[in-house]
Computed example of a mutant assay.
Amino acid sequence: MTRLLTAFASLICLGLAALGFSNASPLSLFDAIGPRDSGGRLAARDREFGKGPRHTLDVYVPVTAPEAAPVLVFFYGGSWDSGSKDDYAFVGQALAAQGFVTVLPDYRLYPQARFPDFLNDGAAAIAWVRDNIATYGGDPRRIVLAGHSAGAYNAVMLALDPRYLEGVGIDPKVIRAVAGLSGPYDFLPLDTDTTRKVFGQAADLAQTQPMNFAGPLSPPAFLATGDEDTTVKPRHTAALAARLRAANVPVQERVYRGLDHKDTVLALSVTFRSKAPELAEMSSFLMWQAAGRTQYTMTDPARAVKLQP
Rank of each mutant, 00 (worst) to 15 (best):
181 L>H: 15
181 L>T: 03
183 G>E: 10
184 P>F: 05
185 Y>K: 05
185 Y>W: 05
185 Y>I: 05
186 D>K: 00
187 F>Y: 15
187 F>S: 13
187 F>W: 12
188 L>T: 05
188 L>V: 06
188 L>A: 07
190 L>H: 13
191 D>P: 04
191 D>F: 02
191 D>I: 04
191 D>M: 07
192 T>Q: 08
192 T>W: 12
193 D>Q: 05
193 D>Y: 03
194 T>P: 00
194 T>Q: 10
195 T>N: 11
195 T>V: 10
196 R>M: 08
196 R>N: 07
196 R>E: 12
196 R>C: 04
197 K>D: 08
199 F>V: 02
199 F>Q: 02
199 F>Y: 06
199 F>D: 00
200 G>K: 05
200 G>Q: 07
200 G>N: 04
200 G>T: 09
202 A>M: 06
202 A>Q: 00
203 A>R: 15
205 L>G: 01
205 L>A: 04
206 A>G: 13
206 A>C: 03
207 Q>Y: 06
208 T>S: 04
208 T>N: 04
208 T>Y: 02
210 P>L: 02
211 M>A: 15
213 F>I: 03
213 F>K: 01
215 G>F: 10
216 P>K: 14
216 P>S: 10
217 L>N: 13
217 L>S: 11
218 S>D: 01
218 S>Y: 06
219 P>L: 13
219 P>Y: 14
219 P>I: 13
219 P>R: 15
220 P>R: 10
220 P>C: 08
221 A>M: 12
221 A>C: 06
221 A>K: 07
222 F>S: 00
222 F>M: 00
222 F>A: 01
222 F>T: 02
224 A>Y: 07
224 A>S: 09
225 T>N: 14
226 G>H: 15
226 G>Y: 15
226 G>M: 12
227 D>R: 12
227 D>F: 09
229 D>C: 04
229 D>I: 01
231 T>I: 07
232 V>G: 03
233 K>P: 00
233 K>R: 15
234 P>Y: 08
235 R>K: 13
235 R>A: 14
235 R>H: 10
236 H>S: 11
236 H>D: 08
237 T>R: 06
237 T>N: 08
237 T>D: 01
237 T>L: 02
237 T>P: 05
237 T>V: 12
